[in-house]
C-alpha cells in the first residue's frame, strides 16, 4: 500500500520567472532524502509546496496516488526558525500540535503526551519555560518535538539547523538521526550543508541553480547505518561522494557565472 512521493513536472513561477521548472523525482517511504543546492536555488520552494504552504503553478506532487492540496497533519514541518508561539510554554506549544492530531484526547493526556515528546528530544526539564527563556538550539528541539507529536508519516525539514552554532548543529543532527533510526519516517531535508546531507541521508537530490531550477543529480549515499561521525574522516566512500557533490555545485556555479 505504501507508495512513493512523486514530484511530477513541478513548476513554480513568480511573476515572469520560473523559480522551479519541471522538477521530477520520487521518494520512497521510509527514505531519508536531502535536497541540496545553492542558496536561493528553489529547494525551499519545493519543500514549501510539499508542505502545502504554496501551490504549484503547474505539475504537482502525488502522495498515495492523490495530488496534495494544502497542508496536512501527516506532513509535519520544522522551519529554519523555531517558529514557536512565544506566548505559550514549550509544553503548550507541543500540546497545541498534539491536540490537533488527537482532538478527542483529554486535557490530561495531551499534557502527558506533550511532556513525553519533550523528554524524547531531551528537554523535559524545560517544559514550563517560555520560548524567550530558551536558547536557539533548545527552541529548535521544541519545534522538532512539536513536529513529531503530530505522528506524521512524512517529516519535512527546511534548513532546520541553519541558524544554530556548529556544535549545537552536530548535537541536533545526531538527535534527528536517532529518532529516524527508531521511527523510520520518510524525511525530506532541505539543506546547503554538504556534510549534513551526506551524514544524514540515504539519497541526495542535487538541484541546479535557479531560476528554472530542476533536479541535477540523484546520488545514493553508500554509507552503512548506523552512521558514525568518524566516517567523515575515515571512509573513502564519504570522500568520493563529497567530491561528486562539490564537483556538481562548482560546475554549476561556473555555468551560472558564464551566462
Amino acid at each position: 500500500m505504501k507508495r512513493p512521493i512523486i514530484f511530477s513536472s513541478l513548476t513554480k513561477t513568480d511573476g515572469a520567472v520560473a523559480v522551479v521548472k519541471d522538477f521530477n523525482a520520487s521518494i520512497l517511504p521510509g527514505q531519508f532524502v536531502s535536497l541540496l543546492g545553492h542558496s536561493g536555488c528553489g529547494k525551499s520552494t519545493v519543500l514549501s509546496i510539499l508542505a502545502g504552504l504554496q501551490e504549484a503553478s503547474s505539475g504537482g506532487i502525488i502522495i498515495d496516488g492523490r495530488e496534495i492540496d494544502g497542508p496536512a497533519l501527516s506532513r509535519a514541518i520544522v522551519f529554519q526558525s523555531p517558529s514557536l508561539l512565544p506566548w505559550l510554554t514549550a509544553l503548550e506549544n507541543v500540546r497545541l500540535a498534539y491536540a490537533q492530531a488527537n482532538p478527542k484526547s483529554s486535557a490530561r493526556s495531551q499534557r502527558d503526551a506533550a511532556q513525553q515528546y519533550l523528554n524524547m528530544v531531551g528537554i523535559g526539564d524545560y517544559a514550563h519555560s517560555l520560548p524567550s527563556e530558551l536558547s536557539q538550539g533548545t527552541q529548535q528541539r521544541v519545534s522538532i518535538a512539536r513536529a513529531f507529536s503530530l505522528e506524521p508519516r512524512i517529516l519535512l525539514l527546511d534548513e532546520p539547523f541553519g541558524m544554530l552554532d556548529s556544535i549545537t548543529r552536530l548535537e541536533l543532527q545526531d538527535l534527528l538521526l536517532d529518532l529516524w533510526e527508531q521511527q523510520r519516517k520518510t524525511v525530506v531535508l532541505v539543506t546547503h550543508d554538504i556534510d549534513e546531507a551526506i551524514y544524514l541521508s540515504d539519497r541526495i537530490l542535487l538541484m541546479t541553480d535557479g531560476p528554472e531550477a530542476k533536479l541535477g543529480r540523484d546520488l545514493t549515499v553508500p554509507l552503512p547505518r548506523p552512521r558514525d561521525r568518524r566516517m567523515a574522516t575515515d571512509d573513502p566512500a564519504y570522500f568520493q561522494l563529497r567530491r561528486e557533490v562539490i564537483g556538481f555545485l562548482v560546475s554549476h556555479t561556473r555555468q551560472f557565472a558564464a551566462v
Binding site: A51, G52, P71, A72, S81, S83, L85, W87, L96, L150
Partner: peptide, 25 residues
C-alpha cells in the same frame, strides 16, 4: 508569517487560530 505558517500546517480551526495565534500576537 511564521505564525501564519504554524497555524496553517497545524490546520488550526478559525476559532483556535483566532484565540491561540491572532489575538495573542
Amino acid at each position: 508569517q511564521d505564525y501564519h505558517n504554524v497555524a496553517a500546517v497545524l490546520r488550526l480551526s478559525p476559532w483556535k487560530r483566532l484565540t491561540k495565534v491572532l489575538i495573542p500576537a
